[in-house]
């Protein structure tokens, strides 16, 4: 078994939204980022994996069916959801005594060390924490039972760049400690993913648009900037989408080397994940 999570044709129908045949894997040792607009289906996907939302299709975690082995599997997962947490009228120290009852493998020493490492006070009420501190506490709580898999919904949104970087370092360390672990995280802050994810799954309107290695997106994709004349010479199968401007055309290609060899085009910029996402959503085809 090489994947910690396998999704196959996961679908969920709501009145005004549908998640359609979502299939992707989270390989061992890898960090997978789930991106998409607000309301694209990221949270529904995560909640389906965790069986919080009852969806059709199969979800396998550690090679086992997630519905049939829910209890056993959840012992081995750390989860951070947007809206989940214990009472704000607890201290970080009190959280530990509660978690001890939840998880067989709760490691109090590890938790206390993490609090120290993250500069979190043990005896202050959580309600007086900053949002960055709250997120770090959630993550400390999620990894102190040494889970094999970490699933996080928007762990960096609303946080300043310094805290976001600290959090990314926590994830890097978590994976390096044991390379059979995996992380699945959803985010709309795509710059974070450029520096941490191995694969990116892009969801739009409940469907997967692409599922690709991050380095392929950053190395092979390109944004052609050219005149209208040059644009009309491009073969339709050589580009994904384009934006028409008054003075120039911008065209997204998935293989800039093909463009370089085939056409006389000189300006091909390196796109960010955000650029790619915007072309897929807003570009013309």
């Amino acid at each position: 078994m090489d994947n910690n999570i396998e999704l196959q044709n996961v679908s969920k129908k709501y009145k005004d939204f549908e998640l359609e045949n979502i299939s992707f894997n989270v390989p061992k040792g890898c960090i997978v980022g789930l991106i998409g607009e607000n309301g694209a289906g990221k949270t529904t996907t995560i909640k389906s994996i965790l069986n919080i939302t009852r969806a059709e299709g199969t979800v396998k975690i550690f090679g086992k069916d997630s519905k049939e082995n829910e209890k056993e599997i959840k012992e081995e997962i750390g989860v951070v959801l947007d809206d989940s947490f214990l009472s704000e009228y607890l201290t970080a120290k009190q959280v530990s005594s509660i978690m001890k009852d939840f998880y067989k493998n709760w490691d109090e020493n590890k938790y206390i060390n993490l609090l120290k490492e993250f500069n979190l006070p043990k005896d202050k009420l959580i309600k007086d924490f900053s949002s960055g501190m709250k997120m770090k506490l959630k993550i400390a709580t999620a990894i102190s039972h040494n889970p094999k898999l970490l699933i996080l919904d928007e762990p960096t949104s609303g946080l300043d760049p310094v805290v976001r970087n600290e959090i990314l370092d926590i994830f890097r360390k978590y994976i390096e400690e044991d390379e059979t672990r995996s992380i699945l995280l959803s985010t709309h802050i795509t710059t974070d993913l450029e520096h941490i994810s191995d694969y990116i799954v892009f969801i739009e309107k409940g469907k997967i648009v692409f599922n690709l290695p991050t380095d392929e997106l950053l190395e092979n994709y390109g944004i052609i900037k050219c005149s209208k004349d040059d644009f009309t010479k491009l073969d339709e199968k050589d580009y994904i989408a384009y934006k028409k401007g008054k003075y120039q055309y911008e065209v997204l290609t998935s293989d800039k080397n093909v463009i370089r060899n085939k056409y006389n085009i000189t300006i091909i910029d390196k796109p960010s994940i955000e650029d790619i996402m915007l072309f897929y959503i807003k570009g013309e085809k």
Binding site: I31, E176, I196
Partner: peptide, 10 residues
């Protein structure tokens, strides 16, 4: 990969 802040696949 962690040190260079890039993907493990790279």
């Amino acid at each position: 990969a962690n040190e260079l802040k890039i993907s493990f696949l790279t």
